[in-house]
């Protein structure tokens, strides 16, 4: 049986449909549920093999991006989520999902304190929608490790993804944490040029196990080359990499 991905929706999340589409393109089954549905039946987490926190403006980002979403998950699903992660099931957080993963303390070091990483406001002081050149670090992260070579070629040829955020500046608690992140090779992506003041130009990180990926750029919005503004080309886009890699991982 094919693996199933649980995709969260509701409370202001708004990229669930595009994210679901990205997983489906890799032949994965998807279950998109409202957060309140999951809270009323947390067993859903046992029935799925992967969890995605899509982008959006959960709770209007009113107390900081991802803040209330993380609080809600902590208040209602803390043990279930911990259990999920300990079963070595992969998790991805994109944009607002990344922000929530940081607030949940799942990145960079799961369950080692909540405050190792914050997502600060862009140095520009406002929201930015822009396609950026990305440098990939092919590390142990299962969200890129198992990708087909054609998708690896694709990111060489089209190393671009869009960012759409107002608070995407990786800010680690202190220099030690940042160094630990670099030493353990947890950075998955950097911007070629710093886009928002992020420490070490970081755009995405993983955990030491490589199961949790948190990224500010939106791969689900780059599934087709026709969506790339800077090139006139057709066919699968660079966003496939992550979903393809995890599909292989889940089939193992």
């Amino acid at each position: 049986m094919n693996a199933t991905v649980l995709i969260l929706a509701g409370d202001g999340i708004n990229c669930e449909e595009a994210t679901e589409n990205a997983f489906r393109l890799q032949g994965l089954q998807c279950k998109t549920v409202l957060i309140n549905q999951l809270i009323s039946r947390p067993q859903i987490l046992d029935e799925v093999q992967c969890l995605a926190l899509p982008g959006g403006f959960s709770f209007g980002d009113e107390l900081g991006s991802g803040q209330i979403l993380a609080l809600k998950i902590k208040a209602t699903l803390k043990d279930e989520l911990k259990n999920f992660a300990q079963k070595k099931k992969p998790i991805i957080g994109i944009c607002n999902g990344m922000q929530a993963l940081a607030k949940l303390g799942l990145l960079p070091f799961p369950f080692e304190g909540d405050n190792n990483l914050s997502m600060g406001g862009n140095v520009q002081g406002h929201f930015i929608n822009k396609w950026c050149k990305i440098e990939y670090h092919k590390n142990h992260c299962h969200w890129i490790k198992w990708a087909d070579s054609k998708y690896l070629d694709l990111i060489e040829q089209y190393p671009y993804l869009p960012i759409r955020h107002g608070e995407g500046r990786y800010l680690f608690k202190n220099q030690n944490i940042l160094e630990k992140v670099e030493d353990q090779n947890l950075v998955v992506m950097r911007y070629s040029e710093n886009q928002n003041g992020s420490q070490n130009k970081i755009a995405a990180i993983t955990d030491p196990e490589g199961l949790i990926l948190g990224m500010m750029p939106h791969p689900e919005a780059a599934m087709e080359l026709s969506l790339l503004p800077m090139k006139k080309a057709f066919g699968p886009g660079p966003g496939h990499l992550f979903f393809n890699s995890i599909a292989h991982f889940l089939k193992q």
Partner: peptide, 20 residues
């Protein structure tokens, strides 16, 4: 204009600003 999200939904094939 770049302060507006112009591609959430992943359907915007002609964006307000494009080209290299």
């Amino acid at each position: 204009v770049r302060r507006y999200d112009h591609e959430v939904g992943a359907k915007t094939v002609i964006k307000p600003y494009a080209s290299e």
